[in-house]
Amino acid sequence: MNSFSKLDALHLKVRQNKWFNYFTVFNRVALAAGFLPAGGVKIMGERFTDLHNNQPMGHYLEALYHTGYYYTTIGILQVVAAMLLLIPRTALLGVLIYFPIILNICILSLAVRFEGSLLTAPLMVISCIYLLCWDYHKLKAILFSGTVVVTQPKITDNKFPFKFFSGVFAFLVLFVFTITHVFDLMPRNTVTDCKTQCDDAKNPGACNVFCECIHLKGQPFDKALDDYHTALKQ
């Protein structure tokens, strides 16, 4: 049995399991719930957050808000992706639209250390990858034969996959711990919130300067962070 045959057999076994089907529905609904309100706000032409312009994510979102129909188009795509995810026959198309959007949000959140989506965005990316794997047979058919097989295999396995869900739980714990400890300094949403972390910082004075440079002086995030790290070495 070659690698593709083994993968096909494993994939079929997973899709025949009742609990994996429930988990798939949960992922689709959760992802849809994440994009419907966010997309609706953009379609209505409203600002997505009330972050001030000096805050790194606020600066980006304010600029995005002023891009006209580009801002609206993102909202439309978010709503369309969410709606398609809720329909089993169109769920794959939905995740294919959803994935590049949330991947961009994930990278942005990590780049500016935005706590509002620092945990959720990466998890949504992983959720999309899971759904892509769930529809592996469709992707394989499109890429190699140009046709799509949409037949849902009959559910024949009711056994709860303890190993899989234990792994999911362990991953979530490790992920949350890593994300909340990997960054030495966060810009936070306001200068007051930012300064609450300074008492525990390696250099409280430099930390306060960092917060003021971000929120009061409007300096670029990377420059303020570099200045803080330089101060640590002195």
Rank of each mutant, 00 (worst) to 15 (best):
V29E: 15
V29L: 15
A30Y: 11
A30Q: 02
A30K: 00
L31M: 14
A32G: 15
A32I: 04
A32W: 04
A33K: 03
A33E: 07
A33S: 08
G34L: 10
G34H: 05
G34D: 07
F35A: 11
F35K: 03
F35W: 12
L36A: 01
P37N: 05
P37H: 06
A38P: 00
G39T: 08
G39E: 06
V41I: 15
V41N: 12
K42V: 05
I43Q: 06
I43R: 08
I43W: 11
M44S: 15
M44W: 09
G45L: 04
G45M: 07
E46G: 10
R47P: 00
F48Q: 14
F48N: 01
F48M: 12
T49N: 14
T49R: 13
D50H: 14
L51P: 01
H52C: 03
N54C: 00
N54G: 03
Q55W: 02
Q55M: 11
P56N: 08
M57W: 07
M57T: 11
G58T: 08
H59G: 12
H59N: 15
Y60E: 02
L61T: 07
L61Y: 11
A63Y: 12
L64G: 02
Y65I: 01
Y65C: 02
H66I: 01
H66E: 13
Y69E: 14
Y71D: 10
I74L: 09
G75I: 07
G75R: 07
I76L: 14
I76E: 03
Q78P: 04
V79S: 11
